[in-house]
Design a protein around this nucleic acid. Structure first.
Lengths: 342, 342
DNA sequence: CTGAAAGCGCTTACAG
DNA sequence: CTGAAAGCGCTTACAG
């Protein structure tokens, strides 16, 4: 096992001072070209790697971003994390990741460790519990401390921070409109992530669309995937449901499973549109028509926004709202095919 | 924006020395109970959080684990990461994650940043390219530097490190045996992750099973999902394939899609067994019978193994091989139903 | 062009 | 029981 080589050791070997070695490695113009290359050569030879902790302590920056997400398993967050990681890596930032598990307490805990100067800034998507209870003190503390914070997807408008999100309301309205245009007359909204900011927006858009046709909105909240089928099935038959807007990918998939297993045809009997463009929906049979939630793009923009914030602290918060679209696949009828059927 | 309070500041406010304050906060028995509580109270009042960089520099430990995975999107790695994060969090460790994107170069780069004393130890699953080319210098360097390294899933036997994996060979053999027992006579092995350690083992187990019945093994390697169907379909019809062991979840799903879309019935015409117990396989119609790859468990054990290694450097490397099982769902016939059909 | 000194925020032997 | 001093590995104003 090699002994880890430090500046001091390098200086000793070169008969130079630590300061000179440091400057040489950092390509300071103060140092002669000859010395610079001599130093660098020896550093290379000895596999010198500067100690990041010491650098961070001195420079007061860590080149590290803290990321807090509610859950890593849903493909939206997996993909967002992917976008975050690759964008951060390209810009020379490492990421520390914490999963809040939808709990405010764990979210607080994660943020507490970020208070210790371990990260330059934070990217966060709020836990369900935090959005339900609106307890935001731990987030305010971060802001008070002056650590830049960027929200994505599940954002808060009460805090003055940068944020990235999609226009959930508008796209939910559009999705509902479209289902109606292809013949659906009893469209319901189904959600397992109720009381999150995104859920509220989507519900809103759905309700607006229904109101345009004086159709009664019907919101189905299912708390636990374990009772999915027994909650959904009676609603389908009692309400003669022929269109379902599902607020998350797994709900959409389980909706299709439930429907198909019980003799309904998709999209002929029931149209389904989901949120999040994940692999599950993409490869299911029938493949899922879905709102493109721009997971990777949101992650990417969150990093970019954070990095510009790191450079320029004093501009106003930027609230990015991404435009989005529906990806049409097999779980919805096309306007054309619907017209042919009429 | 509050000014960040340091030990020095606390000491000034309390009229004590920095050393005393530090010891008091660390509950040193050297300090009187009274002083201790006085210090702690003020620290709490001022939201004092010790600077982690300074502590790390001094203590030479970071309470951070570096994680390198080839790709975050396949559910095996998502789940493994989930296991890693939750286990690490419970033990008070943060995790820095790097994605190698299956490339040796990015793997090297990630490890380089870990050389800078940012992490206490590393958990890694090898990139496909690294396993193909067997370039292991960057990993040897980590070991030489004395940074504890734990492999999981895609491991290397050439390096003397702790590792966690499942017995891929044994379970692949069993899966093939089972398909044969339920009537499959032309079983092929299909992989998109060829030349990884896990692929080789699985291939091995499959070949052994085939050899027991003097059946010719047939290995289908598909490099690109884009040509999946056009590569698979001719093989199915020419070889009269009635059983497919697919080395990864997505391949298994695409196999089922391809088969069903072309008029084959699953499992009546073709049985399919996949690897990785992911959501996609669980919820597909028909649901996928699959080897339980123990993703979360592997992640958990990797962390536990690393943490014990951190405590005790000098014991021999431990190679954990987890026992595993097949989760029987709808994509395979049961032995019973097969017997009834005869 | 090079180096001595101070300091980032901590911890910990050592002295009193 | 408390504090002064050294030091973790760097960087950077300042002096020469």
């Amino acid at each position: 096992m090699e002994q880890k080589v430090t500046l001091k050791e390098l200086a000793r070997l070169l008969n130079l001072s630590v300061s000179t070695v440091s400057k040489a490695l950092n390509d300071s113009s103060e140092i002669s070209a000859q010395t610079r290359s001599r130093v660098k050569q020896l550093a290379l030879l000895n596999n010198y790697v500067p100690n990041g902790m010491a650098q961070s302590l001195k420079n007061n920056k860590t080149k590290t971003i803290g990321v807090v997400i509610p859950n890593i398993l849903p493909s939206f967050f997996t993909k967002a994390l992917h976008g975050i990681e690759s964008t951060a890596a390209k810009a020379g930032y490492k990421i520390i990741i914490c999963i809040s598990n939808e709990s405010t307490e764990k979210e607080e805990e994660s943020l507490r460790t970020f208070l210790s100067g371990r990260v330059d800034g934070i990217i966060l998507s709020l836990a369900k519990e935090t959005q339900q209870t609106k307890k935001l003190d731990h987030l305010k503390r971060i802001i008070d401390y002056g650590i830049p914070l960027v929200f994505f997807d599940r954002i808060s408008d009460e805090l003055s921070c940068d944020s990235i999100s999609i226009d959930d309301k508008k796209i939910a309205e559009k999705a509902t409109d479209e289902m109606h245009q292809t013949g659906c007359r009893n469209i319901i909204y189904l959600s397992t992530i109720f009381d999150t900011s995104v859920d509220l927006q989507r519900q809103n858009g759905y309700t607006i669309s229904q109101a345009k046709r004086r159709a009664e909105p019907y919101i189905l909240h299912i708390k636990d995937y374990a009772v999915f089928q027994e909650r959904l099935l009676p609603v389908i038959s009692e309400k003669c449901v022929d269109g379902i807007l599902a607020a998350d990918e797994l709900s959409a998939i389980l909706t299709m499973r439930t429907a198909i297993k019980n003799g309904y045809k998709i999209p002929e009997d029931i149209s389904v549109i989901g949120f999040t463009n994940g692999f599950m929906g993409e490869h299911f049979l029938p493949s899922l028509s879905t709102v493109n939630q721009h997971a990777e793009e949101q992650g990417k923009m969150a990093v970019e926004t954070l990095i510009s914030r790191l450079k320029d602290e004093n501009t106003d918060p930027v609230k990015h709202v991404l435009d989005t679209a529906i990806i049409h696949r097999e779980s919805t009828r096309t306007p054309v095919s619907f017209l042919k059927n009429v």
